[in-house]
Every structure is written in structure tokens, then in C-alpha cells.
């Protein structure tokens, strides 16, 4: 009588033996005590392993830290940046000097000047300039009009248009996705001011957004798969009208593009919808992808269903990470502004 063969017994229990082999094992199991015990034990192991594995099916979602980041933005050589800065400074100075003798009744309003450039300029321009510019200089610098007249054109001309998302685009993998992105070099003064102006214009849509701007470190842009394409198309077609730009934005559902230097994975942000400024959601940064954060709601005090909002980051190459949930009422929260906030007590 052969010794019980565990592999054979498991194959039999799994129904993977030929009829002849199966009949032989069955006979052994019924006639030999040792084989019978081995079969009983194997049955127990099969059942136990299934039960153990089924415990793994109840898993939370959205807890994975980044495994892939967008390809790093193409780095310009230093001399290119220097040349660009010089051109920008010279151009700005010339513009100011040219206009200096003319009587200026009132400086152009930022809100009027920026929207045409915003939808395309923000995603790329802000990550570079915001962290440096915002905390210290924004409140005082905002009323400075001349710089804001230069800014939109400068941003629009120098910032590449975001790539439309491809839903099934292969994902680039970063060797160290958790690493914080390298801090951006200080931008030229014009760019800093331009960015401040851009933030002001973007964030000032709701009455309460101004209060949030001085501490703003993260700007979330409304976008998702088709929405981003819609943004580009709409903004191109309605470049002359602030209202058109706003309506183009309002047609979109919320997504998220942010900047996170330094990447604060695990930090919390207070997220306000621009359209519904009273809706506040505390969101935890669960993933830092390069200069973007993926946020997940942990506590909502929403009045309009935005407590279900989950802002999934869309990285700057247009690749979407995961899915996106908009407001429960189906309205879509549209643009949101996030400010650093203390994490809610457990």
C-alpha cells in the first residue's frame, strides 16, 4: 500500500485527476485508514485556506500609496531658464515703460485679465510658482495691477497645454514614488506675481474664497477624463470672456490636480468647492504623485452632498489615477480650493 501522497490527494479533491486516477484514490481513501486520515486533513486544509483567503476580500479602497508617478517634467537646462527670465524681465519692463506716460484711469482687474489663460495655464504654472509665492507675498501683492497685466500672456505663452488624458494610457513608473518632489526653484519675480494673480482670480470666484487664498498651498483644478479635454476646447473658443471661461469650468465635474511641495502624504486639507463655498470637506492626502496629491474625504460638513467627494489626482501628464466620485447630489462640485488644515481628531 503506497504512502499517502498529499499532492495527489489535493489534486483529487480539486477534481484535477483523470477518472482512473480519481477512482484509485477514492478506493485508497475508503479502504486505508492512513489515506482516509490524509484525505480528511486535506479537506480541512482546502476549506480553511478558502476561508482565510475570503477574509482578504473586505479591504478598504484608496489606501495604496503611489506606485507610479507621471514622468518627470522635462527639465530645461539652466541657461534656458536664465534666458527665459531675461526675456521676461525685459519684456515686462518694456511694457511698463511703454505705458508709463499714458494716464491710467484704473488698473485692469485681475479677474478680467486672467480667465482666458487660466484653464490651460494653471495646471502647469502653479505647481512651480505657488509654493514659493503664496505664503508670504500673496496678501500684499494681490492689488499690484501692472504685474497682473503681464502675467496671463506670459503664462499662456510659456506654459505647454496639458495633455488630454487617455483613459487606458500606460502608466509610467517611478522608482521612488513616495519621495517628495524636488522643491521648485524660485521663479522670476514676474512669474511669482503672475501666479499670485492667477490664484487670486481662480480662487476669488466664491465670496469666501479670498479668505482661504493666503494660506493656500494646493490648488485643485476641475477636471476628469473628458472634462479636461473640454476645458481646453472651451477655453480656446471662449478666450475673450471671463464669463465664458467660468461657464466652461462649471460644466465640469470635479477632479483634482494639485501641487504638493512639499508632498504631505498623510496631511489634511480643507477643501472648498468654488461653486459651493459653504461646503467644506476635510480631506486626507493619501497619495503624493510628484507634484499632485490625491485626497480622500475623512470628514465632511457639507451642505450640498460634497461629503462624498473624493478628489482623485490627475497627474500633469493627464494620466488619471483611479476613479473619481463627485458630489452625491450629482451636481459635481466643480472647482475646489484646498488649504492646509489640521487633521481631524480620531
Amino acid at each position: 500500500m503506497p504512502r499517502p501522497d498529499e499532492g495527489l490527494i489535493h489534486a483529487w479533491l480539486d477534481g484535477q485527476l483523470t477518472p482512473e486516477e480519481a477512482a484509485r484514490i477514492e478506493q485508497l481513501a475508503t479502504t486505508d485508514a492512513e489515506w482516509g486520515a490524509a484525505v480528511a486533513e486535506a479537506r480541512g486544509l482546502v476549506a480553511a485556506s478558502s476561508r482565510i483567503l475570503s477574509a482578504l476580500d473586505q479591504v478598504p479602497t484608496g489606501v495604496i500609496p503611489p506606485r507610479a508617478t507621471a514622468p518627470s517634467r522635462r527639465r530645461m537646462p539652466w541657461w534656458t531658464k536664465a534666458a527665459a527670465a531675461i526675456v521676461l524681465v525685459a519684456g515686462g519692463s518694456a511694457l511698463v515703460l511703454q505705458r508709463a506716460p499714458l494716464p491710467v484711469a484704473s488698473p485692469p482687474r485681475v479677474e478680467q485679465a486672467l480667465p482666458e489663460a487660466l484653464p490651460e495655464a494653471l495646471p502647469e504654472a502653479l505647481p512651480e510658482a505657488l509654493p514659493e509665492a503664496l505664503p508670504e507675498a500673496l496678501p500684499e501683492a494681490l492689488p499690484a495691477a501692472p504685474a497682473t497685466t503681464v502675467a496671463p500672456a506670459a503664462i499662456a505663452a510659456n506654459v505647454p497645454r496639458p495633455t488630454p488624458m487617455a483613459a487606458a494610457a500606460p502608466k509610467a513608473v517611478s522608482p521612488d514614488p513616495l519621495a517628495s518632489p524636488a522643491p521648485a526653484p524660485p521663479p522670476p519675480a514676474e512669474t511669482r506675481e503672475a501666479s499670485q494673480g492667477a490664484v487670486r482670480a481662480f480662487a476669488s470666484a466664491p465670496p469666501t474664497a479670498d479668505a482661504a487664498v493666503p494660506q493656500a498651498r494646493t490648488m485643485l483644478e476641475p477636471t476628469d477624463g473628458g472634462a479636461r479635454r473640454e476645458t481646453s476646447a472651451n477655453s480656446a473658443n471662449s478666450a475673450n470672456s471671463a464669463n465664458s471661461a467660468k461657464s466652461a469650468v462649471s460644466a465640469l465635474r470635479v477632479g483634482a490636480v494639485g501641487l504638493a511641495p512639499p508632498a504631505v502624504s498623510g496631511g489634511c486639507y480643507e477643501v472648498r468647492a468654488v461653486q459651493t463655498p459653504n461646503a467644506v470637506v476635510i480631506m486626507r492626502a493619501v497619495r503624493a504623485d510628484g507634484d499632485t496629491l490625491r485626497l480622500q474625504a475623512v470628514q465632511g460638513t457639507s451642505t450640498q452632498g460634497t461629503s462624498t467627494l473624493r478628489a482623485w489626482v490627475i497627474v500633469h501628464d493627464g494620466t488619471r489615477r483611479g476613479a473619481m466620485t463627485s458630489a452625491a447630489d450629482g451636481s459635481g462640485a466643480v472647482a475646489v480650493v484646498a488649504t492646509v488644515a489640521p487633521c481631524p481628531a480620531p
Binding site: 498529499e6 499532492g7 490527494i9 489534486a11 484535477q16 485556506s49
Partner: peptide, 12 residues
């Protein structure tokens, strides 16, 4: 079969 029997036993 051998791989599975080992895996199941070890897992348990």
C-alpha cells in the same frame, strides 16, 4: 497538486 497542498497547509 504538491504546490497547492504545501501552500494550503502552510497558510493554515
Amino acid at each position: 497538486g504538491t504546490t497547492l497542498s504545501r501552500a494550503r497547509r502552510r497558510l493554515a
